[in-house]
Design a protein around this nucleic acid. Structure first.
Length: 648
RNA sequence: GCCACCCUAGCUCAGCCGGUAGAGCAGCUCUCUCGUAAAGAGCAGGUCAGGAGUUCGAAUCUCCUGGGUGGCUCCA
């Protein structure tokens, strides 16, 4: 055979593979092995994702993407969204297609359809999708000119597609994908044929604005998911189930922690005694930890005059997040959406020397923000919440040290709640919109980076993503279901220092502007407790549990002794609950188990005689009989240790 | 705020096509005094989210309001 008919392909391990000219990615996969071919969805050719049908060129570097590769899932999801769009247009020809990308573990497609899709439509669409998958239609790629594309979609009456194409660059290469008689504008790649979608499910419908802009038309969105196997789909569906079981709103009700009352108002939390106990534990620990870290506790009012918010800039930049003011005599007062102006006022109440710095003001400050009704969500998104707020005011030369201390403190603090898996993001200066000098930004950003580097903490940089007033670190804690929650934020604020004219007198007698860092570790206590509920499934570690020990006499005759044990526990500061109902112990145990109380002390005649207690641990069962002082010490030690780096 | 869906006893839910509300759990009372996840009986508990309309008749159909859920949007 002529060598011109052959091409050489490089595989990821740099080995060479000789192929016939005109061979595709799929041919390559097949040549490597049949098994690989059967599981391959696409290829990465010289770094770019391509279809299996892509024709290879001499010298290409190719990685075959199997269905279990990290990139594979998005491709599969995206292809599934095309199948859904096809099914929708088969069933509802009047529905116009817009866009349908893959998002994390899901895909969606937005349609312009009136009336919008309801959950009841999903079953029908799923059934049609099954048929399309059964037909195993090929995903065929076609390249097309811009004008041809516009013409094609105009003919099809697909105005949204036309709009998308018109907004693309003139010289953009356009590609279409067709399966059966369904054609969509799409960059690709796709799986080779619809049959590759082995398992899928439509999840829910939702409204979504065209191009995410609330001034545009509301479209009808359908969410779904797809996996290379039924097994993986089920795993994902189980995950969703599990998340539902852990929903803090559900557990909050079951454990009687809090409620939101219609008459009080949406987004406003009423903490019941048990929820308040957990909060109080968090607060007590927070205060102690902050005092140990040389923070000064301050306390500020809930409202402030309009001038304050004018100076701070909130009325200019944050008014949409603030509640309407109330008139008091001749002034307008606003409920605080943030604590910072107050802390700054405390700082400014005296001349500050360089010797005073750093000054660190901390407050569990309750703030109120107007959130649109549609975004409210249990404890996670509320209108009134308590920030674990602090402001660090320091000199430039103290920056590195303060940031480093703060980071260490933050990681340790989160660890005591069992959160040790944390993603860190630094947001840097945006090119066009920022206050302060470039030098300040650089100094601050470098302090953030070098402190993280020193602590050997990996982070991602979100270039240009900072707000206009300063660079920041955001942290996301990972919960037991591997979900991320943003809690911690550490933000420089060059704006307020300037606006409020913050100063300190340096050693050379000059008045200088200090750096101000605004930080919250837990973010909002409400939200944090919500995360904690979902993380622990309501099985709180002993130090946080609203009731730590349930004292259960076997029958009424042991109540008196049980009372003694109960008092003894309380004397040690252990939150104990005595069950004096006349039910059988098994019922009392069941009650304590469903209440998720970590320890149960069972007291019968044997225990009275030997001055012991029989101990049962929540979810573990009977752990044996202990001398009372011994088990109390064990529990006290467990409380003191909190739950550093222990996974649930 | 927008789109879709939902709201029945404290909680979880049943109540078909309109005929005027039901269960389990929880609560209360009584009986039982019990050894590691539910003892038995009885009692009480609801303007069916609120309002208006259609109808001889509305938990059920329609509209409005409130609240919630899933999204969108927003997030100094």
């Amino acid at each position: 055979m002529d060598s011109n008919d052959r091409i050489e392909i490089y595989l990821p391990d740099n080995s060479k593979m000789e192929m016939e000219k005109g061979a595709t990615v799929g041919d390559l996969a097949l040549k490597i092995s049949k098994g690989l071919y059967n599981h391959s969805l696409a290829g990465r050719v010289n770094g770019e994702l391509k279809d299996l049908s892509y024709t290879l060129n001499n010298g290409d570097k190719v990685t075959i993407i199997k269905d279990d590769a990290p990139e594979a899932h998005d491709i599969l999801l995206h292809s599934a969204s095309h199948v859904m769009a096809q099914a929708v247009q088969d069933l509802y020809p009047e529905a116009k297609v817009t866009i349908g990308p893959a998002v994390e573990n899901k895909f969606y497609y937005d349609f312009d359809k009136d009336p919008a899709f309801t959950e009841d439509d999903l079953e029908k669409i799923e059934a049609r999708m099954e048929e399309i998958i059964e037909e195993d239609l090929e995903f065929e790629r076609k390249e097309i000119s811009r004008d041809e594309a516009i013409q094609l979609f105009k003919e099809k009456n697909e105005d949204y597609k036309v709009e998308i194409i018109q907004d693309l660059d003139q010289d953009e290469k356009l590609s279409l994908y067709q399966q059966g008689d369904f054609i969509d504008l799409c960059r690709g790649p796709h799986v080779p044929s619809t049959g590759k979608i082995k398992a899928f499910k439509l999840l829910n419908t939702a409204g979504a604005y065209w191009r995410g802009d609330s001034s545009n038309k509301m479209l009808s969105r359908i969410y779904g998911t797809a996996f290379p196997s039924k097994k993986e789909l089920n795993k994902y569906l189980n995950f969703l189930e599990e998340a539902k079981k852990r929903d803090h709103r559900k557990i909050g009700k079951e454990l009687d922690l809090f409620h939101i009352d219609q008459e009080v108002g949406p987004g406003l939390i009423l903490w019941h005694p048990k929820g308040a106990r957990i909060l109080q534990q968090i607060k007590d620990y927070w205060i102690k930890a902050h005092i140990d870290e040389d923070y000064e506790l301050v306390q500020s009012p809930h409202i402030g005059q309009s001038n304050l918010w004018k100076t701070s800039g909130h009325l200019d930049f944050y008014s949409e997040g603030m509640f309407n003011p109330m008139k008091i005599e001749d002034d307008a007062y606003y409920i605080k959406p943030m604590n910072c102006p107050f802390h700054i006022k405390i700082y400014n109440s005296d001349i500050r020397s360089y010797r005073d710095l750093p000054i660190k003001y901390a407050e569990l400050g309750t703030v109120y923000r107007y959130e649109k009704s549609g975004v409210l969500h249990g404890l996670m998104r509320v209108r009134g919440f308590t920030q674990d707020d602090a402001h660090i005011i320091c000199m430039p030369e103290q920056l590195d040290h303060e940031i480093q201390k703060l980071l260490e403190f933050t990681f340790d603090f989160l660890d005591s709640f069992g959160f040790s898996d944390i993603d860190v993001y630094i947001s840097t200066r945006s090119e066009d919109k920022y206050v302060g000098s470039k030098e300040m930004w650089e100094e601050a950003t470098n302090a953030l980076k070098s402190s993280l580097d020193d602590l050997k903490i990996e982070y991602q940089i979100d270039e240009g993503e900072a707000t206009f007033y300063g660079p920041k670190i955001d942290m996301k804690i990972r919960d037991s279901l591997n979900r991320d929650w943003q809690c911690t934020t550490i933000q420089f604020d060059f704006n307020l220092a300037e606006r409020f004219n913050m100063e300190y007198v340096d050693s050379d007698g000059e008045r200088k502007q200090p750096y101000m860092i605004h930080r919250a570790i837990l973010g909002s206590l409400e939200r944090f407790l919500g995360v904690l509920i979902e993380h622990t499934k309501g099985n709180f570690p002993v130090w946080l549990a609203p009731v730590q020990v349930a004292v259960l006499p076997i029958s009424d005759t042991q109540i008196e002794e049980a009372q003694k044990v109960h008092k003894e526990l309380q004397k040690h500061g252990i939150r104990s609950e005595l069950n004096t109902t006349s039910e059988p112990v098994s019922a009392k145990i069941r009650k304590a188990e469903t209440d998720k109380i970590p320890y149960m002390f069972i007291i019968g005649d044997r225990e009275i005689e030997n001055e012991t207690v029989s101990v049962r641990k929540h979810m573990k069962g009977d752990i044996g009989t202990f001398k009372r002082s011994e088990i109390i010490d064990t529990i006290l030690e467990e409380i003191a240790n909190k739950n550093r780096s222990t996974k649930n």
